[in-house]
Write a protein that binds this DNA or RNA. Structure first.
Lengths: 142, 142
DNA sequence: GGTATAAGGTTGCAAATGTAACCAACAAGG
DNA sequence: CCTTGTTGGTTACATTTGCAACCTTATACC
């Protein structure tokens, strides 16, 4: 008979922490801009690294292509993103942020940094490195 | 202009790690017993702490009562759980595992321990404590 | 007792997700 | 060219979820 406790089980702990922390930040992009989490992630990539196609977004963000497709549609509806057809390969469209999209990105990136700093408050740099490294390792298991 | 990287943003990192790790374990309860994640969590609480009502499950597991209700229905359909009416308070039902439910619990709890151990492989006890403590702190923000 | 309020649970509905199928455009080999 | 396979991207459908409304039984207070 096993005597594992749920509160010690890493998948549980991670899920709880991720949920709590994500919901906390969700308030910002959701209430302020009416975005979903995937929208925010796509916006982030375009704002941070510049115009690119949906495939490139997918590659960088590790999001499934259907989620990217839907997020792009949402951001377009919010007038934060525009598409430009690629003449050389007519399957592809280059995505870029509109001025409104860039403003939203600037705002949210700043908030994200503040939020992140708050989450790490009281943690020593060594601990922080250990935690980050371990989370990266876990995230890369696939 | 902010220069945050997504891979450093804690909500992102946590979400990725939680997803990866949860999906990994999901394979076990899903393929072996046809359970959903909530089912497994409810099963766990009943197996680990004994018979209790749905409210108590909710309190311990931090699951929303709707999810508990549906998980109980699923587990019942899988013949792993049975309900017994409470004569004193007819709103309440005491939930307990059937023999099949207990066998599933034993099996899954054992697997969970093995899986957890694998996830911590190569991490020193000190690091592990720091990580666990920080995750708990984050999960309790609410 | 009778009325209001709350607690235990379930159900209905809308929103979100995952999966697979799909369409259009390109590329390679015959 | 033309058929076969691949890539970029969207759509359809089933499954999950979250939220609010709901039903029933119990409790508090008059």
């Amino acid at each position: 008979m096993s005597n594992l406790e749920m509160r010690d089980f890493l998948p549980y702990l991670l899920t709880m922490a991720a949920e709590e922390v994500s919901v906390g930040f969700q308030r910002v992009y959701r209430e302020r801009y009416g975005m979903l989490r995937t929208d925010w992630r796509v916006l982030f990539h375009l704002g941070r690294y510049g115009a690119m196609t949906a495939s490139e977004v997918r590659g960088r963000s590790r999001l499934h292509k259907t989620k990217v497709s839907r997020a792009v549609a949402n951001l377009e509806r919010l007038r934060m993103l525009s598409r430009e057809a690629d003449e050389r390969d007519r399957r592809r469209e280059t995505l870029s942020l509109t001025p409104a999209g860039m403003r939203a990105y600037d705002d949210l990136a700043r908030e994200a940094e503040r939020y992140d700093a708050k989450l790490w408050h009281g943690v020593t740099p060594q601990e922080r490195d250990a935690i980050t490294a371990h989370l990266r390792r876990l995230a890369d298991l696939a």
